[in-house]
Design a protein around this nucleic acid. Structure first.
Ligand code: MN
Ligand code: MN
Ligand code: ZN
Ligand code: ZN
Lengths: 136, 136
DNA sequence: ATAAACAATGCAACACTATTGCATTTGCAA
DNA sequence: TTGCAAATGCAATAGTGTTGCATTGTTTAT
């Protein structure tokens, strides 16, 4: 029910596959890969449909994508109020070296860095590695 | 000549392909992808040989790998004295949104972040986006 | 200089992530 | 309820990266 209104709110059609994807991501405390979703969805949808749904969600600011250290995309619901033209997502992405899960971790003071001359900074991403709370 | 001794110093055999790769990376001020190298090498070596040489270099601390925002690996010579078991590389990786080049940028104060309870930080990577000095 | 030992290379095949085209189905609004 | 635009399924394709195996090349010792 919640996922249907979330889709409506972003001007997207409410379809079974989309609602299912959103419910899976809402029930997971870490970012999920396409392979994760494909496995959980089972035979309910084609892999291409999942890719397209995820791309659509990202374009509309419903989810955001983060690449893990293998370069594979993982997706998580946006916490801040993102929309088509405003993606905020100023938090740290932490990948566990044991279970490989990727967590979105808000941190109190997001660091600022000063750039060398000529380089114009637009966005700074923090990617951390370590052991997560479940693997400790 | 320089590349040959670099290889020797790391206990690696000096071969034409390896020397060529090192010379290309030494002459480039930004990180290079496998596709870049394959194009510059021309028909001098097989793609698989390049992959294997790059992996070997990384394992021995001669180069380090950084994934760009498409998840593609880019390689650059290590500045610090890295070896098989000590990779340092505490600098910022900056990808230009115009030319897509990735630069290794040393910064004066490498930031520290405090982690939420239960999460054990091992390494923090900084990945920046913006416009590089040549595209400005 | 020669030969043996072992590492590096080339080639083919493969795994995996991701995208595109096109026909069909479905959601939604008139 | 009907029509249209959007979403889906299926097949094909591109790109990155790895593995197995036979062959070639580098190094070390003789
Ligand atoms: Mn996140
Ligand atoms: Mn670097
Ligand atoms: Zn873990
Ligand atoms: Zn640039």
């Amino acid at each position: 029910m919640e996922s249907a209104s979330l889709l409506k709110r972003h001007g997207l059609r409410s379809t079974p596959v989309r609602r299912l994807l959103l419910e899976i991501m809402d029930a997971t405390e870490h970012a999920v890969s396409h392979a994760d979703l494909e496995q959980q969805v089972g035979g309910e949808a084609d892999r291409v449909t999942l890719y397209r749904a995820l791309n659509t969600f990202e374009e509309h600011g419903i989810i955001h994508k983060v690449l893990d250290r293998e370069g594979v995309a993982r997706f998580a619901l946006c916490m801040d109020n993102c929309s088509t033209h405003t993606h905020v997502d100023e938090h740290l992405h932490f990948q566990c070296t044991v279970c490989s899960n990727v967590y979105c971790l808000p941190i109190e003071h997001y660091p600022r860095v000063s750039m060398p001359n000529g380089f114009n900074l637009v966005r700074l991403s923090l990617v951390a590695e370590g052991v997560c709370k479940r693997c400790n």
